[in-house]
Amino acid sequence: MAVLTIRDALNEALREEIIRDENVFVMGEEVAEYDGAYKVTRGLWKEFGDKRVVDTPITELGFAAIGVGAAMAGLRPVIEFMTWNFSILAADQIINHAAKMLYMSGGQFKVPIVFRGPNGSAYQVSSQHSQALEALYANFPGLKVVMPSTPADAKGLLKSAIRDDNPVMFLEQERMYGIKGEVPEEDDFLIPLGVADVKREGKDCTIVARSMTVPMALQAAEQIQNEFDVSVEVIDPRTIKPLDVDAIVGSVKKTNRLVVVEESHAFASVGAEISHQIMENAFDYLDAPVKRISTAETPMPYAKNLEALALPSVEKIVAAVKDVCYL
């Protein structure tokens, strides 16, 4: 096992896939000569040159479209959005084109493309740079949505995403790029899309968390264990779509309690979908109503205290677990 940051784990995944398949190339703003706005592509341009690592103008709709057309014509583009906030400019290409091409061509034209970049809040970057967009993209048939929370998951899932024949939205988190963790050193370390991971086993309450809220959930679980001797299970779906419903339902059938934690807004969120799945598939197993922790229903404020207030936190998760456990 090597200890890597999420940033370097992603970098390794890109590097290995560029070497493995000549049709893989990375494209986006500042990915090449600048080494990546968040340094995920550090060193790749120097190693592989202009063909495989391509700087674009600031033209999100345009280069997303280049990716879609190139994928239809047989390449495997990895398109970086400097942040997912900017993907909204490219939404027509992602939603109207990439997501629908296979279906409306009667199965003839695959679009094997990865769109990736940081999603959610950073540190005090305010409203237009702090959005968690997974629920938006997960709403459209034809797209896969992936959100890693550890260096190992980041590497294994990105490699699988690049090899997948469908459009994959790969949502990282800016606050998490520096998080370190063990990554297997095997030659071809892959994690299949659509499979949840139990990040902590427990028997009294389930927390479903993703991306930035996974470390928070683990910390909250530890705190609850120490304070109340209550054992909390933390499930990380890792792939939002397709969602590993069985893993979540199985856990809730065991613990009878569920808290969903997410960085996105609550309304029509992935958490809402998970809550519905539990109602449909584990209604009789619930000993308490499902609780959700989401970001406040406001654009993200700039002020440090307000930003913290808007976001999920360990304290909020602890409080929610106490609620559903009637502590």
């Binding site: 709709l61 345009g62 997303a64 479209a65 280049i66 990716g67 879609v68 057309g69 190139a70 994928a71 239809m72 014509a73 047989g74 390449l75 290409q93 084109h97």
Partner: peptide, 9 residues
């Protein structure tokens, strides 16, 4: 845009 991507390929 898609056609431009095809030409890119």
């Amino acid at each position: 845009g898609v056609g431009t991507g095809m030409a890119y390929a």
